[in-house]
Simulated scan of single mutants.
Amino acid sequence: MTDPRVSPDPALAVLSEPKRVTAPLVDLRRQPDGSRDRQLLYGDEVTVLHHADGWSLVCAAKDGYCGYLPSDSLGSVTPATHKVTARATHAYTEPDLKSPEQHSLSFGSQITALSETATFIETELGHIPRQHLHRTSDVATDPAAVAGLFLSTPYLWGGNSAWGIDCSGLVQIACLACGLSCPGDSDQQAKELGRSLPPGTPYERNDLLFWDGHVAWVQTSETLLHANAGHMSVAEEPIDQAIDRIAAQGDGPVTLHKRLSLPDG
């Protein structure tokens, strides 16, 4: 388990109960009714450690991150067959784009197919355009391209979805789509992702640049992509300009330049 952030009280009876998230999006909190640390998506699998007063302390299977979420946002584990690979999609009442939508789902959500047509896949949530889904076994090979899907997405502290995302959320969602294990927070990512490169190493696509409390994807040798509070969105920015701007606002210099081992394309 990677640095879980929240651990159960030793005085509590600790469970080990597999569940999955059945809400389109749910906040993972440090305390019941507390502030958001991260978010989980529909289909994310968790282990429940404790239930109390309508809240469950869970540990997310994808990264070991622990926190509290409403117990009614959890359901039985059902093997997922497909995942959302568009930035966002809708599940419709009927296999018809003019029928009412029942749910909205973010990139990375995992669902179970019940039947398929040429244009829609029927799921437990409704009918989803098949262009927006891929098999769960399909793996992307270019994290920066995945991150680019979120260009202009609003910045949201602790966000992990198409409706709001932060710097570490943007790194995690792209890494997971490429089959790379990735923790949830930037300090964890700085410790666990890739290999460190010496200062002055030329930038390459899919490198990561870290600051104290911030992380960005390298898009090209001259540009990066990051979710940041300066733009309040996911933005493209010249690397040198970003380094100068972040230093000027008091957040210091780049602390790490790291390179990932990527799957073959």
Rank of each mutant, 00 (worst) to 15 (best):
V6G: 04
E236L: 09
D9W: 01
P183N: 01
P18W: 11
E17F: 03
T255N: 14
L74K: 03
A86Q: 15
P32E: 01
G184I: 06
W157H: 14
A147E: 00
L125S: 02
L193P: 00
K258P: 04
A13F: 02
I243L: 12
R29K: 15
L209V: 04
S99K: 03
S152Q: 13
L40F: 13
M232R: 08
E222W: 05
D166A: 10
Q189L: 06
S137Q: 12
P199K: 06
S76Q: 14
A60Y: 01
A118C: 04
S168A: 10
L193A: 03
R36Q: 15
P79L: 15
T141G: 01
H127C: 15
L12F: 03
E222A: 15
S35V: 15
A86I: 12
E236K: 05
G158P: 13
A162H: 14
D251Q: 15
L193N: 01
D142H: 12
R38F: 12
R259E: 04
S56P: 08
H214C: 11
D33E: 13
V48F: 07
R30N: 15
S106E: 00
L12A: 12
K98W: 06
T119L: 11
D63K: 09
R205W: 00
T220H: 02
G67D: 06
P198A: 11
H82N: 14
S115L: 07
D72V: 13
R259W: 05
E124H: 15
F107C: 01
C66R: 11
Q110D: 10
E204W: 00
G148E: 08
A235P: 01
V58C: 07
K83H: 14
I239W: 03
D187H: 13
S106M: 00
D53F: 03
Q131H: 14
L180A: 07
D72R: 14
T81H: 10
D207N: 04
A88I: 03
G250N: 12
R130E: 01
S16G: 09
D63P: 07
A162V: 01
R20F: 05
L149A: 09
P143K: 02
S115A: 15
K191H: 08
S109V: 09
T255C: 13
A61W: 10
T81K: 07
W217C: 02
G159R: 02
F120G: 00
L156H: 13
H226T: 12
E236C: 04
G169H: 08
V46D: 03
Q219I: 13
G213A: 07
